Simulated scan of single mutants.
Amino acid sequence: MSTPRPAVPADAEELVELRSLMFEAMHGEARPGPWRGTAADLLVRRLSEPERRLQAYVVDDPERPGRLLSCAIGTLEQRLPAPGHPDGLFGFVFNVCTRPEERGRGHARACLEALLAWFDARGATRVDLHATEDGQQLYRSLGFRGHSTPLSRQRPAADLATG
């Protein structure tokens, strides 16, 4: 059985590596670039906050200290209250990944269950995520269901290059 623990700032580089593996699984590639350093810096800062709004749970590699096998990362968001969401607290899971050679051993489930318990303890009334085909069975087994059709807007590529 996998035993997750809360991530600490020293885990930032490994969390970015797992995030890169997630993008590789989703898109067939994980582009290198400055995003990695920015993500690591952000993780160090956010994982150091006493009142965390970002939380990550990880499973350590028992054979290689400092190496992570799996993670689940999410944020607690304050939105305006609404019917069914009296405090306006929502969770968003944006990174669940297990190293390819370690998949199917319950690591992602253990990390995600810990993250969901963290959201529950803080009163989040809904938790959202974007799922790949590979992850849908896990998420559905933990109570996730389809929701209204999401729409997104992304800045045009030209703006991203100059912004």
Rank of each mutant, 00 (worst) to 15 (best):
T3D: 11
R5W: 04
A7M: 07
A10T: 12
A12F: 13
A12K: 06
V16T: 13
E17C: 04
L18I: 07
L18P: 01
R19V: 03
L21C: 05
L21H: 11
M22R: 07
M22E: 10
R31H: 13
G33H: 05
G33W: 06
R36H: 04
T38G: 08
A40R: 07
L42A: 15
L42G: 13
L43P: 00
L43S: 06
R45H: 12
R45E: 12
R45N: 06
R46M: 08
S48W: 03
E49C: 02
Q55S: 13
Y57C: 09
V59R: 02
D60H: 07
P62W: 08
P65K: 11
R67E: 11
L69T: 04
S70I: 00
G74F: 02
E77I: 15
Q78S: 14
Q78T: 13
Q78E: 15
L80G: 13
A82P: 04
P83H: 11
H85G: 08
L89Y: 14
V93G: 02
F94Y: 12
R99D: 04
P100N: 09
E102W: 12
E102R: 11
G106Q: 07
A117V: 08
F119P: 01
D120E: 15
A121Q: 15
A121G: 12
G123Y: 03
A124I: 11
V127H: 00
L129N: 10
E133F: 14
E133C: 08
L138N: 01
Y139L: 08
Y139H: 11
Y139G: 01
S141T: 11
L142M: 12
G146M: 09
H147F: 09
L151S: 14
S152F: 00
R153Y: 10
R153N: 05
P156A: 06
A157K: 05
A158R: 10
D159T: 11
D159C: 05
D159G: 03
L160N: 07
L160K: 08
G163N: 11
